[in-house]
Design a protein around this nucleic acid. Structure first.
Ligand SMILES: NC(=O)c1ccc[n+]([C@@H]2O[C@H](COP(=O)([O-])OP(=O)(O)OC[C@H]3O[C@@H](n4cnc5c(N)ncnc54)[C@H](O)[C@@H]3O)[C@@H](O)[C@H]2O)c1
Ligand SMILES: NC(=O)c1ccc[n+]([C@@H]2O[C@H](COP(=O)([O-])OP(=O)(O)OC[C@H]3O[C@@H](n4cnc5c(N)ncnc54)[C@H](O)[C@@H]3O)[C@@H](O)[C@H]2O)c1
Lengths: 221, 221
DNA sequence: AGAAGTTTGTGAATGCGAGAACAAATCACC
DNA sequence: GGTGATTTGTTCTCGCATTCACAAACTTCT
């Protein structure tokens, strides 16, 4: 059983390894890979130790071999069919992105409730009515769904997805959605991220204030 | 000093409180708020206790009062000026989003290196040359920057931002960027999120396999 | 072949966060 | 004014994650 914190970092290692491989590098040490991935080398080694013993002491890791092992562990050696629901501003960006860049996933359908959208084709995939969800999900055995609708529709969309057999949901809508046990939900939320940054900014600003006050009172007190 | 895990949840509570307020609810218990925010009520109470003692035993929390206290603690009672760099598919979506929905932030500039983009106006804000970064950052005292360029450009953009006085960066590009001490970076990464979901999907699939094998061998062994 | 130098994999220590549980505080009602 | 019901704030315990530190394993050089 791999710890959740480690699972969340494996994709980062995978990307770093891909970058190294594209740069023509065949082997790397845990130190080098850790730097490329932006983590501590001890943490990297511990993370990799959960997968097995794929390095060679005194040498390091074979880039391609380790990359394959991580990809296999994550489950992206095969392609996962994905549906995206809500093809507005964000949905368009996601459709373009998933289609071109990311390996391991295949966008099999773009769904939207608005009939005006149904004429469109995004990144080679036509936008279809939301009611086609069940048919598409069962035809392609879709396990992963992406929600990019307004927040008000998110719970309904999630319910329909779950009923159609989707067991993993990536939610971009700023809404808490509840799902049955056995269904995984991850959320991506721009405004939460901005607010976390704002908190730290404010703290930095206060710190400076204190510094100035201290300096004004008398630096060598 | 508020724990980082708590800081990351405060925006969720803020949103839940806003939703309750919009529903006309004036007071709520930790249990109700926890449900709305999708967390455990004990955790919620402990989180709030770091801010102070803003509830009333036997009663609960005044929705508006608590909302203001959290907003103040996060630092979103004022508006933070934000610049977005890289106005492609994703940048367009972000510009439209930040402009309309999220309180506490104001998009003061959209920047792109591609001259073809400079004619455009997105959500009322004109797209300007990337080289205007320094002038805009100092004019508006911008502390928060958003990167939505391709991965290859992310480190350069980050360096320029830092040089221009930006001390918090939200990075949407799939790249590890390094910044000096005192600068905060948060990243949002679609393909990492998908891969985490894929891992769990794979595990679910293997579990089913084991179940089937066990059933085939003989369920009551 | 042996010594010196690298680098991995892991046991141990430390720190942090989650959740249970309960005492203190408040309200409603009589 | 007192009693019971309700709900917060906090203490305590447990488990997980991070980091250190080092022995084991491998390479290279002599
Ligand atoms: N744009 C961003 O950068 C951004 C960032 C973070 C979060 N979000 C969130 O992502 C979501 C989408 O944002 P957007 O800017 O693309 O909004 P949008 O309004 O442009 O697009 C929403 C789309 O969802 C469709 N839709 C509405 N109800 C539906 C339903 N029940 N079933 C299927 N489709 C439905 C609409 O027809 C529309 O095409 C919103 O919840 C937003 O808050 C957006
Ligand atoms: N589209 C998505 O849903 C999505 C999701 C996750 C992550 N991302 C990432 O976000 C980034 C943007 O994605 P996109 O789909 O909008 O790409 P895009 O190619 O549509 O847009 C990128 C924009 O950045 C501009 N740019 C390039 N170099 C620049 C520089 N040095 N300075 C300023 N601007 C520059 C380009 O002119 C272009 O307008 C990419 O790194 C992508 O991997 C995108």
């Amino acid at each position: 059983m791999i710890p959740e914190a480690t699972v969340a970092r494996l994709p980062v290692y995978l990307r770093a390894l891909t970058a190294l491989a594209e740069g023509g590098i065949r082997t790397c040490s845990s130190e080098e890979l850790a730097t490329a991935a932006g983590v501590n080398s001890a943490k990297l080694r511990k993370d990799l130790s959960y997968l097995g013993s794929y390095g060679t002491r005194g040498v390091g890791y074979d880039v391609d071999y380790l990359r394959y092992q991580i990809a296999r562990e994550i489950g992206v050696t095969q392609d996962w069919p994905v549906v995206i629901v809500g093809i507005g501003n964000l949905g368009h960006a996601l459709a373009n992105y998933s289609g071109s860049r990311s390996r391991g996933f295949r966008v099999v359908a773009l769904l939207d409730a608005d009939p005006e959208r149904h004429a469109e084709v995004v990144a080679g995939v036509p936008v279809r009515p939301f009611d086609d969800l069940e048919a598409i999900a069962s035809e392609h055995a879709v396990a992963i769904g992406v929600i990019a609708t307004p927040a008000a529709a998110a719970q309904d969309v999630a319910d329909r997805m779950v009923a159609a057999g989707v067991t993993s949901i990536l939610n971009f809508a700023p809404a808490v959605i509840s799902v049955p046990d056995g269904v995984d939900v991850r959320k991506v939320d721009l405004s939460i991220e901005l607010q976390i940054l704002a908190y730290h900014e404010q703290r930095k600003a206060h710190e400076h204030e204190r510094d100035h006050v201290a300096a004004a009172i008398g630096g060598d007190a």
